[in-house]
Write a protein that binds this DNA or RNA. Structure first.
Length: 357
DNA sequence: GCCACCGGTGGC
DNA sequence: GCCACCGGTGGC
């Protein structure tokens, strides 16, 4: 039995995606790789007025049929992530996966680079395997928290769609116009007043996404270490019942394998092998210098092929999203951490969002 | 390969 | 000056 994957979908500039997208592995065998028998979900954003538009466009533009669900035979949770700059204003309005303040900033960020954002949350029915859009992030988190013990079924959606049943067509299909990512099941809902933020990184990054927690005070926390320290420093939260078990920094995994750049082999590994006299080990000088010196540029060349002929995995919109990101940073070597010394600090982040009772 | 963590820079 | 984002390390 595989671990319990949940899926996310990321739509990056769907209007630029060409017909080859329809041959994406997303449509075929990959869907069967996640062997689970519970339900899955998809999340939609906090406001979802464009839901019908999305679904319609998916069905009309790509001609997806219910038969595609056969590939999603296992219970999964999914989020759909959109490129906010590539979609209409309505979708941008609908895209505040984060707080309003943050999403606005997010959108403003887009002149030089546009990051994908979570466009929708979806969950798969454990009975009919159709994907159902979840109206809010909060509802999605609620379902995700107990997805293993309480599989999602279409009838669950009657809470917000009273007539829904397995007889209705799926809300969304896993086609090539979106990136889908596998979310993790049974992640606790954030404590009241806290926000769990998922930030999708640009394609070609070494990591797919980051999770942050925003405390009611507005402080943004990036790791369990920071959470622990914050709670230690603010014992009132503990008194209110906040505990470490309510936090998880697990991130979804992109279904598109090449979305995340592979990390080159580490020098220490080769070096150690060589030092230990292991047969077949390489001297550093024998290693492809591409892997050492400039992973960014060289891999970018491989990813950044010509636009329309580019296969789905490296569709032109992804290039658009990521090329600016690839800009080499000029760091002062002396300032870089290179001695392995442990480092730890908390950042102060101002968030203007008012508390939610 | 994946995960956890966090330093540091570019952009605001 | 701040901080969101990405890069990269170490551990497993």
């Amino acid at each position: 039995m595989q671990p319990h994957p949940l899926k996310l979908t990321i739509k990056l500039k769907g209007d630029d995606i060409n017909d080859s997208d329809l041959h994406s592995p997303l449509n075929s065998s990959k869907m069967g790789n996640n062997a689970l028998n519970d339900s899955a979900f998809t999340g939609h954003l906090e406001s979802a007025p464009q839901e019908q538009i999305d679904v319609t466009s998916l069905e009309e533009d790509h001609g997806m049929e219910d038969g595609d669900n056969q590939y999603s035979e296992n219970a999964q949770n999914q989020l759909v992530v959109y490129d906010p700059a590539a979609n209409g204003a309505g979708e941008i309005e609908a895209a505040p996966y984060h707080t309003g303040h943050q999403s606005l900033r997010f959108l403003r960020y887009s002149t030089s680079r546009v990051l994908p954002s979570v466009g929708a949350f979806t969950v798969q029915c454990a009975h009919c395997f159709k994907w159902r859009l979840i109206p809010t992030k909060e509802k999605y988190e609620e379902i995700r928290e107990h997805i293993i013990e309480q599989p999602f079924v279409c009838e669950t959606a009657r809470e917000w769609r009273p007539e829904i049943s397995c007889d209705d067509p799926a809300d969304i299909f896993q086609d090539g116009s979106r990136l889908w990512a596998i979310d993790k099941p049974n992640i606790a809902q954030p404590p009241p007043g806290w926000q769990r933020l998922l930030r999708i990184r640009g394609e070609g990054s070494t990591k797919f996404a980051d999770v942050y927690y925003v405390a009611p005070s507005g402080k943004r926390l990036r790791s369990m270490v920071e959470i622990q320290k914050y709670l230690d420093d603010h014992p009132d939260y503990i008194k209110e019942g906040v505990s470490m078990s309510q936090f998880s920094f697990q991130i979804p995994r992109p279904l598109q394998e090449n979305y995340v750049r592979k990390r080159p082999a580490r020098f220490a590994t080769v070096h150690d092998a060589s030092r230990l006299g292991m047969p077949g080990s390489l001297e550093p000088s024998e290693v492809n210098p591409i892997a050492w010196a400039g992973p960014d540029e060289n891999i970018e060349l491989q990813l950044g092929g010509p636009g329309l002929s580019t296969p789905y995995m490296v569709s032109p919109d992804l290039k658009l999203v990521n090329q600016p990101v690839k800009k080499k940073r000029t760091r002062t070597p002396s300032k870089r951490r290179c001695d392995g010394e442990p480092v730890c600090h908390l950042r102060k982040v101002k968030v203007e969002e008012p508390h939610r009772p």
